[in-house]
């Protein structure tokens, strides 16, 4: 479904990711592991069209999407739920969700239907639907960010560190919801530092280190790989 072929992205003279290859099949959950600054977010930005690739190709459903505008990429079915959530802080929860469906703005009925679905996934958002997004707790904001991404009805959802800064119990819920979204038919590419939880729901993973992929394999392989265990699981 999504294929990165020899993708490189640079900020000025600094090469953030160098010649990486990633393959995501339809229906999978794939995880990108790595510490801060390893290149996970840059990869996501390149896929979303926020950064232009310097080299290599980004193929989505067989078509090259490298260099397309962010808006066109959302329309083609890739939506990113970015690190830091990037919500509209002074808009209410429901307004944020409606903005999430921007690419479907002509179809009012579908928007209503999607909102209902998001409220079913996250009942707390329904309770807080009139509150400003900026007034929510961290976990609720993360739920809203995922909900807003869902409103665009993505075929592929990019989730950048959804567990960051959240209490363990909330993290567990978050991963359950991600699994549920995947079961409903959305392919998921997940960037995480929480390797244990992420590999628990993913089918395969890639480990990033200073801009390159150093290890890749199925979740079982990575969980039993000594270097991965040492670096990301702490056992």
């Amino acid at each position: 479904m999504l294929e990165l072929k020899g993708l490189s992205v640079a900020y000025g003279s600094f090469t953030a990711i160098e010649s990486i290859d990633v393959l995501v099949q339809k229906g999978e959950i794939v995880v990108l592991l790595g510490s801060n600054g390893a290149g996970k977010s840059t990869t996501f930005k390149a896929i979303s069209g926020l950064e232009k690739p310097r080299q290599g190709e980004i193929l989505f459903e067989g078509k090259s999407i490298g260099g397309r505008s962010p808006g066109r990429i959302v329309e083609s079915g890739i939506v990113q739920c970015a690190e830091g959530r990037k919500l509209f802080p002074k808009m209410s929860v429901s307004e944020n969700l409606i903005m999430g469906a921007y690419v479907h703005r002509k179809n009012k009925k579908a928007i209503k239907h999607s909102i209902k679905h998001v409220y079913e996934l996250f009942p707390i958002l329904y309770e807080k639907k009139e509150n400003a997004a900026g007034s929510l707790s961290g976990g609720q904001q993360q739920m809203l960010a995922i909900g807003r991404a869902l409103m665009a009805k993505p075929k592929l959802m990019l989730l950048d560190e959804p567990s960051i800064g959240l209490a363990p119990l909330i993290v567990e819920q978050m991963f359950e919801v991600i699994q549920q979204i995947n079961e409903e038919g959305t392919t998921i590419l997940l960037a995480e530092q929480n390797a244990n939880a992420a590999l628990g729901i993913a089918s395969k993973g890639y480990v990033f280190e200073s801009g390159s992929i150093v290890v890749q394999g199925t979740s079982e392989e990575l969980l039993s790989d000594d270097s991965v265990r040492k670096a990301y699981i702490g056992a």
């Binding site: 926020l50 962010p70 990429i73 959302v74 939506v79 970015a82 990037k86 509209f88 808009m91 903005m99």
Partner: peptide
């Protein structure tokens, strides 16, 4: 609303496809 959205979070506006 797209104007307001962009004023509140430019990257967020990009991400929803504005």
């Amino acid at each position: 609303s797209t104007i307001i959205a962009m004023a509140q979070n430019r990257e967020g506006a990009h991400l929803v496809g504005i």
